[in-house]
Structures are given as C-alpha cells and as structure tokens.
Design a protein around this nucleic acid. Structure first.
Lengths: 210, 210
DNA sequence: TTGTGGCAGTAACAAAGGTTACATTTCGAA
DNA sequence: TTCGAAATGTAACCTTTGTTACTGCCACAA
C-alpha cells in the first residue's frame, strides 16, 4: 500500500503523514457498478482514490436521479469529510464508475491530522474547493444549458473519465443520470449520429468528434 | 467591534482568537444592493457576517444569472476561502441583500489560524459543509422542480431572510435570480394571487400563506 | 428454435416554459 | 401638471422537453 500511496500522494503529503496513512488506512478494491455509499448512510471513513473513478449522484424523494460529478485519482470526497465531522447522514450516493482502488482512513485521524500537518489541511481545503467548483459546473449545466448541450458535455466527460471513445451505457442509464427520459436521450443521440459526431450501437456509443 | 464579535462568534471561537480577529479585522458596513464581489475579482480578505444578509449569484457567458444562496449572521463565504488560498479569481458575485455589517479578515491570517486554533478549523469546515449543502439544495430546485415550485421556494426563502412578509422585488428582478423571463414570473405570480396565497403590488409582493 | 426481456427507433401528442407584442398603470422628475 | 420610464397584465405563438404507445431488433436461456 505504501507504494500506492507514494505514487499518488507523495507530491501532496510529507513522509511522516504518508507513514501514518499507511499505518491506519486500509486498502479497498471495488468493481465497476459497486455501490460505495447510499443516501442516508453514516460515513465512518474517508476515501483516498488511488485509481479508477467514482461517480457521485443526487436523488430526490421521487427517486429522480442526477449525476453531480466524478472523483478521480488523487481526489477525496468532500461530502464525506463533512459527514464525518458532523456525524451526519450522507446526502449523496457514490458508485464505482470504473474498477477502483482506494485507501480508507478512519475519521478520527482526519481531525487529528488537521492540527498536525499543514499538507493535510491544504489537501482537505483543496478538495473542498474542487468539489465546490464541480458543483458550480453542474449548476451551470442544468441552469444554463439545453438538454442537447448537456448531453454533449456528459459524453465528453464520460470519455475523459474512462479514457475511451467507446461509452458503454444504455440510453436509459444516460437518461437517469441527466434526470430526463429515455426517449429524449434516444432522440438527441440520433440527432448527433446524423451529424456524424457519434455512432450508435446496442449498449454503447462511439464518439467520433464532439 | 469586539462587542459585535462576542455577540455573534463567541460560541464558536475561544477568547484568544476573538482577540486576534479584533486586532486584525476591519469593520465594514454595506447598504442593500451594494456589490461586494464581482466575478473575476481577486479576493484578499474574508468576511464574517455580523448582521444583514448577502446573496451569492452565478452568471454564465451570456449574462444569464442565477441565485445560489444567501449568507446570514455568523456565516462566512466558502468561495472566498478557496479563492484566498488558491489565489484564484472569484467564480461568483456577492451582493448585499439587506444592509449588512461584516468583519473583514486578511487572508494571511486565515491560514495561520488553521494551524493554531481548533475552533477556527471547525468553523471553516463547518462553513464548507453548509455551503455544499446549500449548493445541493439549489441543484435540487433547478433539477427536480418546475418553475412554479421554484418560485414558491424563492418567496419563502426571501421571507425567511428578510423576516418580512412583504417582498420588495419587481417581477424582472425575480426573473433574473431564477434565470427565467419576466413574463413567466408575472404569469406564475398571478396564478398564486388567484389562489389567495400572495397579493401583488407595484414593486412588492405580500405573502399571505405559502 | 423459439420465446422472453431488455434495448432502441419513432410518431403523435401534451405540458412547461420562453418570446414577442402590445396595452395599461404607476410614479417620479422636469 | 405633464411626460416618460419602469412595472405589470395578458394574449398568441413557438420551442423544448416529457409522455405514451407501438415497433422491430438482439441476445440469451430454456
């Protein structure tokens, strides 16, 4: 685990902190599609992402869903941070977008390190900043963009995260994450295909140029 | 200023910290409608709200606007925190919703206090948590609610912030903050009036029961 | 091989929200 | 007092998005 840590976090944390994380953290591997946190769960440890990607989703009372953002290598979950500190229930759902490796750190440590390590404080604050920025981008999308533009952004984002021009999603799955209906997505995807920007297959979409 | 501080922050900060804030902070009064921060500004100090209310707005490239949330007594601006630390430009606009009194703390101090005072750390983290939560609520509204429901929420919120059943806004102003058009707001307000939930006047709206 | 369930294509229609246009009212400044 | 700008009311129409319904297609298991 120490190697994993050094590879991904040595530019952020001093050796003493890396050592501590190595001592108290536990390595966790999850498969694509696995659920990490459900809305209402209490959170007892904080994830540091080594590899893979996690998607963070919001859901309303009717079960309508919305993709908020992705976490990647070197990230942590800002929601978790506050849940830990405040002993509050999770407001979001976290699912593995890809096969993912993370280090789980017990919550007591995170407070202790806040006083002890400047690099840890910066990391935590930086994480908050990134998450707030991503929330702003999400708000921009749903407030200012039409569904066709949101869809294009979604596909671009997905490509960036998976590093693959083939997106393995059904229209229904995309519709859930954008909180719309399958028919709408099919309609817009077909339009993009007619423009030559994507190619449609069963269970997958190939990005030509977006 | 020390009295202001003690009245509003003594339950959060230890005496030594209150003392420090008192030494380095400057009192600032702004009038309703004053602009505090514009998008693109560099932020050099951090506000602690003593009284009044600040509204935080987002704008896109076309000048379309959206109200994100309000800051009240005891709050600080999480955006500012990260802007300060990262030396980044502001992503948002801040306007005084009411006459407001705040204490401005220079940014160098905030880092110093992070290491020195546990109560400061908790305050900063707590602020982030509240802001993230409010961003989530904003997302819920625009993603899951129709305009009529968003309008009702907006009016309720406004009432809560101003502690007044009379809302002094034009339809155009409301339309800006909800990123829609004046005609749409007039239409929906008239519907609410017909339901007996509000009463409409020139430049103001009286809330009967929402 | 055949049936079954999930996936995608598409048409027709409905609803919400945005746009344009114009009339009326109100208020403050000249 | 009068004029003009700003605020509001309202109709007609358009666009976007959501809904319903039905089709064919594909993959897999019985």
């Amino acid at each position: 685990m120490l190697n994993n840590l050094k590879d991904n976090f040595s530019h952020l944390f001093e050796d003493a902190l890396l050592e501590e994380i190595n001592n108290v953290g536990t390595l966790k591997e999850v498969k694509e599609g696995d659920k990490l946190i459900e809305i209402g769960d209490y959170v007892r440890s904080m994830p540091l992402l080594i590899s893979g990607a996690i998607k963070i989703l919001r859901e309303d009372d009717n079960g309508d869903e919305l993709l908020l953002y992705f976490l990647e290598r070197g990230d942590t979950c800002a929601m978790t941070l506050t849940c830990c500190l405040g002993q509050k229930k999770s407001e979001i759902r976290a699912m593995a977008e890809l096969d993912t490796i993370l280090i789980m750190v017990p919550i007591q440590k995170m407070e202790e390190w806040m006083g002890k390590y400047k690099s840890w404080r910066n990391f935590v604050l930086q994480s908050y900043h990134e998450r707030l920025t991503e929330m702003l981008e999400t708000i921009d999308s749903i407030a200012f963009l039409n569904m066709d533009e949101r869809l294009v952004k979604y596909l671009q984002n997905k490509q960036k995260i998976t590093k693959d021009t083939i997106i393995n999603s059904t229209h229904q799955e995309i519709a859930y994450e954008l909180n719309t209906s399958r028919v709408v997505i099919s309609r817009l995807l077909k339009k993009l295909e007619n423009l030559g920007e994507i190619e449609l297959f069963r269970n997958s979409i190939k990005i030509i140029s977006l």
